[in-house]
Amino acid sequence: MSAPGLRGGIERFGNTVGRVLNRGGSAAAPRLDLSHDIILYLEGITVSFDGFRALNNLSLYVEAGELRCIIGPNGAGKTTMMDVITGKTRPDLGSAWFGQTVDLLTLTEPEIAEVGIGRKFQKPTVFSEHSVFENLELAMAGNKSVWRMLFAKMTPEQHLRIDEVLETIGLKDHRAARAGSLSHGQKQWLEIGMLLMQDPALLLVDEPVAGMTPQETERTAELLVSLAGKHSVVVVEHDMNFVRSIARTVTVLHQGSVLAEGSMEQVQNDPKVIEVYLGDGGH
């Protein structure tokens, strides 16, 4: 391939990196103010689609460094809530703040990623033909030039950062493996690692253990619990056994609103929750 053709291919690849990581080219990101120990404020959020209220006056507060589980039946509004937080959906009413000073409703999706919110979708999206190490290296590039990054020598600090993330996600022994050869669970961990390379303050994780083996599920629980503290983590999940294994505070959504909130024990003994969710099998 000629140099211009090679460069064009890399630039297209770089655009793909940006889409996967949900990063953009915004200038200076607003400073995150956690002086009140709350990282996410959702207040009175209402979203309607063709007359159907996906979210109905939803209010939710997530503390800095906490691990929050969000549960609820299908159609409860869980995905729409995450869409609002990440800028994919604009609410009809309400406010969404990241810390004290960042108004999420004024930012684009790439800008929201830039200020420190990472989202992991249910289906893992990794670069299958590249190694685990290269996936993390590309994630570290963020909105920088992929062309420049691929041909620049990595600093010792960058190597150390990748090593730290490999250790965190349990893939240190697979650093040279092609990402496409990983198991489903390992791909999920790699994508979490790609988000961690951006050092998000808030990590949104959608049904992380769907399709995993029991061993992978257990390892995923350990991983998410280990992230809490340094990061705030919001997990949307249907697997109630998994939620019980990691839950500190659980929020139950129903018909677009918060139905109940508290410890797992409080929530699972709440008559309203039993009636609309747990009593119906609870998945």
Rank of each mutant, 00 (worst) to 15 (best):
L136G: 13
L136Y: 12
E137P: 00
L138F: 04
L138Q: 00
A139I: 11
A139F: 10
A139M: 10
A141H: 05
A141P: 02
N143I: 00
N143C: 04
K144L: 07
S145Y: 06
V146P: 04
V146K: 04
W147H: 03
R148D: 06
R148F: 00
M149D: 03
M149L: 01
L150D: 05
L150E: 09
F151N: 13
A152W: 10
A152V: 09
A152F: 07
M154G: 06
T155D: 07
E157S: 05
Q158I: 03
L160P: 05
L160I: 06
R161V: 01
R161A: 08
I162L: 11
I162M: 11
E164G: 07
E164K: 15
V165L: 07
V165Y: 01
V165H: 04
I169A: 02
I169L: 05
L171T: 04
L171A: 07
H174I: 05
R175K: 13
A176I: 11
A177Y: 14
A177L: 10
A179T: 03
G180P: 11
G180L: 13
S181Y: 12
S181D: 11
S181H: 13
L182I: 07
L182R: 07
S183E: 06
Q186R: 02
Q186G: 01
K187W: 01
Q188I: 10
Q188P: 08
Q188A: 09
W189F: 15
E191S: 08
E191H: 02
E191L: 03
I192T: 09
I192K: 02
M194S: 07
L195T: 03
L196R: 08
Q198W: 04
Q198L: 14
D199W: 05
D199Y: 00
D199G: 04
P200Y: 02
P200R: 00
A201M: 08
A201C: 06
L203S: 00
L204G: 00
D206W: 09
V209S: 09
V209N: 05
M212W: 05
M212T: 13
M212K: 10
P214R: 13
Q215W: 07
Q215H: 12
E216C: 09
T217Q: 01
R219E: 14
R219T: 15
T220E: 02
A221R: 01
A221C: 05
A221G: 08
E222D: 11
E222R: 07
S226E: 12
L227T: 08
A228P: 11
K230I: 10
H231Y: 06
S232Q: 15
S232Y: 15
V233W: 12
V233N: 12
V235S: 04
V236S: 12
V236R: 11
E237N: 12
H238A: 01
D239I: 09
M240Q: 15
M240S: 14
M240R: 14
M240K: 15
N241V: 13
N241R: 06
